[in-house]
Structures are given as C-alpha cells and as structure tokens.
Design a binder for these strands. Sequence first.
DNA 1: CTGAAAGCGCTAACAA
DNA 2: TTGTTAGCGCTTTCAG
Lengths: 320, 320
Amino acid sequence: MTNIKDVAKLANVSVTTVSRVLNKHPYVSEEKREAVLDAVKKTNYHINRNAVNLSKGKTFLIGVVLPYSDHPYFGTLLKGIANAALEHNYKLVLIQTNYQKDKEKEAFIMLEQKQIDGLIICSRVSEWEVIEEYVIYGPIVLAEKNITEQVSSTYIDHYQAFYQALNHLYTNGYQSIGYCINRKNGVSSQQRERAYHDFLKEKQIPFDQNYIFDGYLNFEDGERVVQQLKQMKKPPAALIVTSDQVAAGIVTCCHNLGLQVPKDLAIIGFDNQPIAKYMGITTMEIPLSEMGENLFLQAITREKVSQKRVNVQLIERQTV
Amino acid sequence: MTNIKDVAKLANVSVTTVSRVLNKHPYVSEEKREAVLDAVKKTNYHINRNAVNLSKGKTFLIGVVLPYSDHPYFGTLLKGIANAALEHNYKLVLIQTNYQKDKEKEAFIMLEQKQIDGLIICSRVSEWEVIEEYVIYGPIVLAEKNITEQVSSTYIDHYQAFYQALNHLYTNGYQSIGYCINRKNGVSSQQRERAYHDFLKEKQIPFDQNYIFDGYLNFEDGERVVQQLKQMKKPPAALIVTSDQVAAGIVTCCHNLGLQVPKDLAIIGFDNQPIAKYMGITTMEIPLSEMGENLFLQAITREKVSQKRVNVQLIERQTV
DNA sequence: CTGAAAGCGCTAACAA
DNA sequence: TTGTTAGCGCTTTCAG
C-alpha cells in the first residue's frame, strides 16, 4: 500500500506539500499541486483514515445506541440521524443493545477509547451515574429529558404528550381509559405513569392496575392486548397505545373479531407512522426524523450542550 | 489524556511491558503486571483505539450497506449481522444509501481508506465493475448471488424460490398469477422475472404485463395494490408478494373491502416476518437473521472467499 | 511558498 | 522476562 511518502518522492516534493494538496490548503504553487495530483494517480494512493484519526485525534464517527434495529420507531429515528450524518460527512457506528447494560457499556468504552467522537443514546437501561462518568470523554446526547446539565438532549415531554392524549379521550366522552406500553421501567413509561395518575386524580377516576398493559412492541402484539381485553369483566373503553405498530395490530385484531373501533374500543396511537395514516388511527405525532437530525447535530458539537424539547401533535383520525 | 508512556513511567517499566499487560501477552512477572495495572488505575488510562488501529492496520469495524434502516427486511438482516459482530468484538458502521450510487461509493471509499476492515452489501445499485474495482482493498460480501469468484456471498436463489411459489399456487389450482415487487431493476427482481417467464412458458399461460406490480415496499403500500387490482377487468387470482409487509397490507385491505382471501385473491408472501405468522399469511421463509450472521463471518475472513446458498422454505398458512 | 522534523499513541521485532 | 527502538501514515509547527 502506497503512502504519502511515496507520493512525495515521486512528485519531488515534501510530504508536507502532499498533505497540503490533499487537504486543499492554500499556499501551494500550481505546478507542485499538479505534480502531486499526478503522483497520487500514478501510485494509486489513498489516504489512510486511521493515521489521520490518530494525528487529529478525531474519527468522524458517531456511535448510535439503540435497543432494536428492526422496529419502525428506531428505524425512523435512525434514518434522521443517518441523513444528518451523511450531510456532515460523518459515519455512524451502530450499537444494538437489546436493552442489555453490558452492550450499552461497550458504547461508552468506544467513546472513552476515542474510537468515536460522540455518542447518541436513543434509549437506554444504564443509570444516569454511568452516563455522567463518561461525559468527560466526549459529547453524549440523549433522546430523553436530561437530568443533569452535562449532556445534550432532544426529547419529548412524555408527561405532557400523554396528558394531552388522555384529555382528548376524556373530552370525547371516554372515562375508563387504559394504556399500553413496552417497558414499564423505561424512562418514558415512568413519565406516562405520572401523567396517568395525575389525570385520574384530577378527574376523580379510580385507578385500576389492570388498565395498564405492559410489554407490547410490535404489530403482532396487538392481538395479545385484545385477548387480554376480552377476558376483562370491565375493559377500558379507550386505550392509549405508545406505538402505532401495536395500535395497528389492535385495530386489525378488533376488525377480525368484529369489534367496532372506536365504538367498542377507542384508540390513540403514538408516532404517526405511515401505518397509522393508512389505517386511519388517531395518533400523537412524533417528528422522529427531525429528532434524529437534531440529535446528530448535538453529538458533533463539543463546545456547548443544549436541550431541545420536541413538540408532539395530535393527529385526529377515525379511532376516537 | 494520559498515554501508555505515562503509565510506563509511573509503573517504572517500559511501554512494551505495559502493552504486554494490556494485551494479556505472556512473559510478564506478576509484580510488574500489578505495578502496571496499578498505574493504569491511578492515571485513569484508556487505550487509544486509533493508535492501535494504525499500528495494527486493522479497525475491527465492518461497514454495512443497506438502502433503508426502517424496513423489517433489512432490520432483521441487520440484527443478524449485529449479533454476530457483537460476538466477535467487531462494531458496525452503518451506511444507509437510499439506493443512491454515490452513497454506496462512500462505503467503498471507507474500505479503500482502511476505515473499515470489510464491507457487507445487503442490497445495491452499483455495478459489478465497481465492486470488482474495490475487492483489492478488503473483503466485500454480498447478500446476493455473486457473478465473479472474487467476493463472498450469502444469498437466496430467487429464481428457484419464486418458481417454487409459483408452483405451489399452480398446484393449488391458480392459473392467473401476478406478482408484486419493490424494484423492477433490482437484482432479485430480475431473477424472479426470469422464473416467471419460464414458468408461464412451461405451463403455457399467456403473459400479461399488468400482472406485475412494481414499487411496493411497505404495509401501507398494500392498499395501492388492491386498488390497482380492483380496476382491472381480469385481475389475477393469486399474487406472489415479495415482502410480507406488503402482503399483510394487501390482506388487511381485502378484509376491509370485504374481499375474501384466498377465495377472491390468494397471497404468498416472502420473509416469514412475525406479521405473516400473526395474520396467517402463507409465505416463503427466508432465514434473514442467519443470513446476517453468515454475512458477517464472511466479512471478517480475509483469506478465502466463499459462497453460501440459503434455502427458502414454504410456510403454508391460510392465504392460499 | 516549501520542507524538516516533531509528534499522535501503540505494537512488535530484536537484543539483552 | 524486559527494554530499546523503529515503525504505522499523517498533520502541523517552525524556520526559511
């Protein structure tokens, strides 16, 4: 493999000059520039990124931590991040964790070892203390509301969004409202739970533990929800479902069983995925792609941290 | 940032010894080992991957080229690759192309510039000539049948799989069979087209251009297919759909419109995604996750190339 | 405008 | 067992 020295020799200049030409620095005479370019061609020279990285102390690589790469929510978020990365000449290192702490840890270690310049955490199980421990090694940005001021974030106010969804149902006459999430212990779920309890208290509606459905992520999980519902003596009249995928599954299953939506069961989804539009599901739109772009931007700015709250918008369709 | 030299100084040993300890090489006395480990702790030392990479000429990074990161097909494939990568201590660099040649090109350049050790191409638009041009820079592996012997591949025989699907329909009494793909010019589509034509010829069924539906990728695209179908005077009695997502969309739409599956329209999907199981869709199972794992393995072996054909299996359910 | 030389941080051949 | 030292390939300061 030919290196910068070979090129310099062939072009009869110093390596410095070659470097200048390659990096389009000024102050190089036209003839030398051409000589260099010519030598580059002749030797089939290609710069070695590792050497550049070492010398510059920068890799132009951003790590992206996410639990699953095969779910539309993260897929769309990732798309936003990827598009922004492309635009800024960065590449992404994918760290799929399946929500395992040790895999998340690996991402932090990459940052520590300078293999990546920054880290985007789309969803996590690690504690805040762990994150704080690693902020000194580079920008860490989160897709959730930050607790400390040390990290940047682009987040949704899940409390507010959930409250809004509840209110919408209530305003439309629904009193017994349940909800459906993926991870009870997830950060967002906790915010939603608070909103739920506060809402019930405000409206003086009694709490029923059975109205909370935990562990539903995909389209096909919708059926399980409906099965649960059918076995209840007093099922909720409406359901907030924190993923359009699951919402779509529920609606489909209802159709199949002859249940009427929203008459028998009202549904509000989350995300506004294409499938929600297609199936006419009322949903809380989350601008995932834009969130991804902003996350990326935050990840490449070392200087200052920032927090950005993203607005969620109710999209009314036919399931409420 | 402290480096190996600082550690050596503090531990009163040479950098070599430090390196040996860090890399668990033999021939280090226990006391020196401890001294080193102690110094590492005290200085909060972390190895610099870029330096290692440069020195070793290896990055433990594999590039993954795929068009969309938000489609279950690629999501599942990616999951398989990611799991294998994890197991072998590699990380993945995601290169999302949206089927743009220049973005694919960037992946090749990364290989050329030694930023990645190998490249997995899940789907492509670049010509074979381009791939051949870059094989000298490192292992390139493809998820499709290779034309030259220079690259490794893990692939499905789309011709055979498609033929099998056609036969299954035919055996079940369907004569007018159409099919639904995403990219007419994609590599796999061309194989399917050949199979289709050969099959029609064999069974002496006349060809109808309108029976080929091109440009359908997601669940919500299913509706467009059904709309097309409805406007035809003589719609096909059965449809092979090369993505379970689209198949599910079609089935759902049929339900909504009161069309009976398979009576009015028989469907065979592809992939065997969870949604196909859930909706009882007959499908050709592709072991995507296993394919991903094998692709990864091929990507990290420099020495010899290999080709692996993966078998597709018919899963009979209720849509035929 | 140009080049010499000192890094960047680590590995490994070689010598001891 | 251990240390010296020469790379790995590029950037950048400094002197000219």
